[in-house]
Simulated assay, not measured.
Amino acid sequence: MDFALFWKRIKRAALLDIHLYEEVEADRETIGQAGLVVVLSGLAAGIGSLSHGGLGGLVGITLASLVSWGVWAYLTYYIGTRLLPEPQTSSDPGELLRAIGFASSPGLIRVFGIVPGLTAVLNLAAGVWMLVAMVIAVRQALDYHSTWRAIGVCLIGWIIQTAILLLAFWIFGLGKPPGAV
């Protein structure tokens, strides 16, 4: 792997370069790079929250990032191509995996959350930044003309993924079911 090109792509993704999202959508060889961006973003979040989550949190956040990436990409694919397609929409799950993986690039700033007092601010900033990147990635990967449609796909996917995560936490005893006392 060409690490110089990889880091340029991360930077371009974080700068919300729509051409980067088109590039990785079309290049099947970037799936490993997209996965690495997700892992690095998860590691950055885990390192940034070491004081709260410890080593277990680091591993948990990284693994959760990978699972969320896959779930999110497949949900987005289904919603974007089946429920809310535009006439020109043409995509496959791999295209969304690649584009959405690179949309995790802004999450790398979360590593600086290790500085006391910065964790919450950086998590919020990274979350908003990654959401904007996600909308751009979805718009490009699904060949949408409408940014609003991409926002709708992301919103519906987020609601479904959140419900799945809450259910999983409840099933595995990691939290109470919604509405439980």
Rank of each mutant, 00 (worst) to 15 (best):
H145K: 08
G173C: 10
Y144W: 09
L43D: 00
I47R: 00
S49F: 01
W72F: 15
P178G: 14
H19S: 14
G107Y: 02
A45L: 12
G101T: 04
V67C: 04
G175F: 13
M134E: 14
K11S: 11
L58Q: 03
G56A: 00
L40P: 00
R139I: 03
A163R: 08
F102Y: 15
R9C: 12
L84G: 08
A125D: 07
H19F: 14
V24I: 14
V39D: 01
D2T: 13
W129I: 05
V181T: 09
I31P: 01
N123Y: 04
Y74E: 14
A64K: 07
P177N: 13
L167Y: 07
R110W: 02
L118W: 13
W170I: 04
A26F: 05
G101L: 11
V181Y: 14
G152R: 07
G113D: 00
L142F: 11
S104R: 06
A64M: 13
G80W: 05
S65H: 12
R98D: 15
R139H: 09
S49Y: 02
G35T: 12
T30A: 15
A4L: 10
E86N: 11
Y77N: 04
N123V: 00
L108G: 00
E22R: 11
F172H: 12
R9F: 13
G117F: 00
E95P: 05
L155H: 05
V132R: 05
L122I: 01
A44Y: 01
G57E: 00
I159K: 03
L124I: 07
S41G: 10
K8W: 03
V132M: 10
Y78P: 00
E86Q: 09
V181F: 09
R28E: 14
S91R: 04
L166D: 11
P177I: 09
